[in-house]
């Protein structure tokens, strides 16, 4: 069990990262990430009985993905991430923590503003602890939802 300060720093970072992505503040999001950051979206397919990777980028790859977004035709409906940090574990030196969060993603239609549940899953973050300067090193979003309609260009 980690102390209050570590848990607070971890929760703050996880929640801020979700808000930055929701706000399409890509630079703000990447500023919360270490240089060695890696983002993976995975899912298990009961149909082919395999684990699948749906997206896997290092920090540079994420940077490029965000930079290229305006060149693509995308669904512009905003999405809202609801994360709840379930557990936080830290190494004995208190330098690195792992946070497991439940993730729900909602999509809100631009016309009329109807919101719908888009996806659910679990998010595992590895975090370098340094108080207010703590940074994300790794994010693995493991989706339970695999039917996401016409999809989305921005990772959950």
């Amino acid at each position: 069990m980690v102390g209050f300060e570590i848990r607070q720093a971890v929760e703050e970072l996880v929640y801020r990262s979700c808000m930055m992505l929701d706000d399409k503040d890509w630079k703000g999001f990447l500023a919360l990430c270490g240089e060695e950051f890696r983002y993976t979206i995975a899912a298990h397919s009961p149909e082919i009985r395999r684990d699948m990777v749906w997206l896997d980028h290092d920090r540079k790859g994420m940077d490029t993905l965000f930079a290229n977004l305006p060149r693509h035709n995308s669904d512009h409906s905003p999405i809202t991430r609801h994360a709840t940090v379930y557990t936080v574990d830290a190494d004995t030196a208190g330098r690195e923590a792992t946070a497991v969060s439940a993730l729900q993603v909602f999509r809100t239609q631009l016309d009329g503003g109807a919101s719908e549940l888009f996806a659910v899953g679990r998010m595992t973050d590895t975090i370098r602890l340094d108080g207010a300067a703590s940074r994300l090193l790794r994010r693995v979003v493991r989706l339970d939802t695999r039917l996401i309609g016409y999809g989305y260009h921005v990772p959950f």
């Binding site: 979206i41 990777v53 749906w54 997206l55 896997d56 290229n68 693509h72 035709n73 995308s74 669904d75 695999r146 996401i148 309609g149 016409y150 999809g151 989305y152 260009h153 921005v154 990772p155």
Partner: peptide
């Protein structure tokens, strides 16, 4: 595969849209 054809790929989302 994922770069263009995955559920978060650049092309598949556009085709489905």
């Amino acid at each position: 595969h994922n770069m263009i054809w995955g559920p978060f790929g650049r092309n598949l989302h556009e085709d489905l849209l």
